[in-house]
C-alpha cells in the first residue's frame, strides 16, 4: 500500500472579485481512493474541481501532486506544457456532457487513439487494437469503432468518454457529474462500469456529484460543500448514515432513500 498521498490540497481558495467560489478547502487523496464532493449547485464543488485539475487559476492555497517518478510538485510551478502533458496522460477528466470531452466529428476509435498518440504511440495497428480493446471494456460493440460519437446515444457517448480518458492508464481521474445527464437505467450501467474500472485500475478519483446515491456507490470518502466551504467530511457511509452538520442532515433527509 502506498504511504503517501497522490494529491494534497491545502487551503485552496477561488474568488471571483469579492465573491467566494470556494475557500479553505484542504484534503489528501491516496492512490486507489475515491473522494466524492457533494453539495447543491452553486456550492462551489465544480469550481473546486476545476481549480484542482488545473483548468481554473486559484486565488490562494496549494495543490501538490506526486508525479510518476515520486517527486511531489506544486501544480502552480509546472510550466504550461508540463501541465498539459499531465492532463493528457497521467490524469483524466470526465465531463458531465460528453460533447465537452469528445471530438464529436472524429470516429470512436480516433477519440480513444488520440490520447494514445499523446503519449507517443505511433503505430496505427497498435493504436487501433488498443482502441478496440477499450471500446470493448466500456461495452461498445467493435463494429462501431469507425462511427462518430454524434451518432451515439448519451450513455454510449459517456462510456466512450470514459474509454478515452482511461486508455493512457492515468493515475488520477476527475469527474464532474459523470451520470448527470443520463436516464436512470443508463446511469446504473455507467456507474457499474466506473466502479469496476476504478477498482481494477487502482485509480485515485475526485468526483463531483449532487447525487448522494452515486457518492455512496463510488466513493470511500466524502466532502460536503455549502457556500464554497467544506462543512463536513469523512468516510462516505459515516457521513450519509450519521450526518452531523445541519446542511448534511438536510441533504440526506431530502432524498427518498440514499
Amino acid at each position: 500500500m502506498s504511504r503517501q498521498p497522490i494529491l494534497t490540497v491545502g487551503n485552496l481558495e477561488k474568488r471571483y472579485g469579492a465573491r467566494i467560489g470556494c475557500t479553505e478547502v484542504s484534503f489528501d487523496l491516496w492512490p486507489g481512493e475515491v473522494l466524492a464532493i457533494v453539495g447543491e449547485s452553486g456550492s462551489g464543488k465544480t469550481t473546486l474541481l476545476n481549480c484542482i485539475s488545473g483548468r481554473l487559476a486559484r486565488s490562494a492555497g496549494s495543490v501538490r501532486y506526486r508525479m510518476r517518478d515520486g517527486v511531489i510538485r506544486e501544480l502552480a510551478d509546472l510550466g504550461e506544457a508540463e501541465l498539459r502533458f499531465l492532463m493528457r496522460t497521467d490524469w483524466g477528466f470526465v465531463h458531465q456532457n460528453p460533447a465537452d470531452g469528445l471530438r464529436m466529428r472524429v470516429s470512436a476509435g480516433g477519440n480513444v487513439g488520440e490520447r494514445l498518440m499523446a503519449v507517443g504511440e505511433r503505430h496505427y495497428g497498435c493504436i487501433r487494437r488498443t482502441a478496440s480493446d477499450w471500446l470493448g471494456r466500456v461495452e461498445i460493440a467493435g463494429d462501431r469503432i469507425d462511427d462518430q460519437p454524434i451518432a451515439f446515444s448519451g450513455g454510449m457517448r459517456q462510456r466512450l468518454q470514459i474509454a478515452r480518458n482511461l486508455v493512457t492508464r492515468p493515475r488520477l481521474l476527475f469527474m464532474d457529474e459523470p451520470t448527470g445527464g443520463l436516464d436512470v437505467s443508463v446511469q446504473a450501467r455507467v456507474l457499474d462500469l466506473l466502479r469496476g474500472l476504478v477498482s481494477d485500475l487502482g485509480l485515485a478519483v475526485v468526483i463531483v456529484t449532487h447525487d448522494l446515491a452515486v457518492a455512496r456507490l463510488l466513493s470511500q470518502r466524502l466532502l460536503v460543500m455549502k457556500e464554497g466551504r467544506v462543512v463536513e467530511s469523512g468516510l462516505t457511509d459515516r457521513v450519509l448514515d450519521d450526518p452531523h452538520h445541519p446542511y448534511s442532515q438536510l441533504l440526506v433527509a431530502s432524498i427518498p432513500e440514499a
Binding site: G234, L235, D237, R238, D241, D242, H244
Partner: peptide, 9 residues
C-alpha cells in the same frame, strides 16, 4: 455495532 464498524461517529 455501527460505532465499532466506523459507520457511526
Amino acid at each position: 455495532l455501527r460505532m465499532v464498524y466506523g459507520n457511526y461517529s
